[in-house]
Design a binder for these strands. Structure first.
Lengths: 190, 190
DNA sequence: GGCCTAACTTGTCAGCGTCAAGATTGTCCC
DNA sequence: GGGACAATCTTGACGCTGACAAGTTAGGCC
């Protein structure tokens, strides 16, 4: 099927296949519960095949992170120039792509100097900065941006790890995006 | 010398020794760069000795997380009832004990039903809730608490991973606690 | 048709977590 | 003081993993 273009020696789409599976596995079992050999097995190739595309384990996570920043850039771009909309979009991205999100900020798992990673991250940052610029008159835009980034990043992380559920701060099965907007609304931007 | 009470068969303080080293290693090299066997070697015991105290790898991280929640509870308690002070204390804890912090919210690394963990976490949560109660008249205290938790957690995580340094949001070598307070001050609590 | 390169395989290695079984030591009770 | 007992640590083994090296196959390009 779609996973193989040729069913012989060459897989045909191994890089994308492994990357997709890796995102799923990281999302469901965490970063530690992942193995290049298992990913290779799932893709129907030999244990060393993924190494050709990613180098090593770190390379796989780096590629995953780069893809994540690309997706985040897209999401932020689609949200438009309003910073509050962008904030909610950040949360939406994190919860829609947990496998990517779990890796993107882990400097111990990612090769910091990877060109693809840097490019994708730079783009996402530029999109966000544009949103802050659109705010108009702000006394201390850098602090505002730090605060906004912190609050959405923290919210997404804590939600993802189930920290909120364990506390009694959630009223029933609240929608994370609704809640995220409510939380972001406690920020003053002026 | 203080690490061994007897230099014979029994180490005497293995559990605490391993835990301390583990915190250091996690802080410096990340969770993945840690190995029970290396920790055992560093403590001068056989490779299977730590298992007696922690069961398995997951047990080690669980113990580390529990210790982290205890430390966090102490820090929050020392900060007093003011929620802004507590928020800064949260950041201070995270940056002072990065090895613990890195593990505390990783549900994939921690045994969720561990009694020690639950007790320590419960205590830290109670201390924090007390601080929110001391705020007085608040329209929606749950949302306020979510927002405060999110912003400090996100700030600490992003700072820790070096995300802020990579952006151009920091003016020079800013003190994280000062910056944290400035960021928290963008929150409206009423 | 022949070459070149990318993609993948096979084989191997040391290190890891985990388990089982045995050795050593401190403690407590008589 | 001595013996049972539990806690602590060792030794040895197993399968799995990431990484590396060397060989094999296929596709593209002149």
């Amino acid at each position: 099927m779609a996973t193989r273009e040729t069913d012989g020696y060459h897989h045909g789409d191994l890089r994308a296949t492994v990357l997709r599976r890796a995102a799923e596995q990281v999302a469901s079992e965490g970063v530690d519960g992942i193995s290049l050999r298992v990913l290779a097995r799932l893709a129907g190739v030999s244990h060393a095949a993924p190494a050709h595309h990613f180098g090593d384990r770190r390379g796989l996570f780096t590629a995953l992170a780069a893809e994540g920043y690309t997706l985040l850039g897209d999401e932020l771009g689609a949200a438009g120039p309003d910073l509050r909309d962008a904030a909610v979009a950040y949360v939406r991205f994190a919860l829609a792509h947990p496998g990517h999100f779990a890796v993107m900020f882990r400097s111990d798992l990612v090769r910091a100097d990877d060109p693809d990673l840097l490019a994708a991250r730079g783009r996402a940052g530029a999109v966000l900065s544009g949103g802050v610029g659109a705010l108009g008159d702000v006394e201390d835009p850098a602090t505002v941006q730090l605060a906004a980034w912190s609050i959405v990043h923290g919210f997404a992380s804590l939600w993802r790890e189930g920290a909120f559920e364990r506390s009694d701060l959630l009223d029933g099965a609240a929608d994370p995006e609704v809640l995220a907007r409510r939380v972001v609304d406690r920020l003053t931007f002026t």
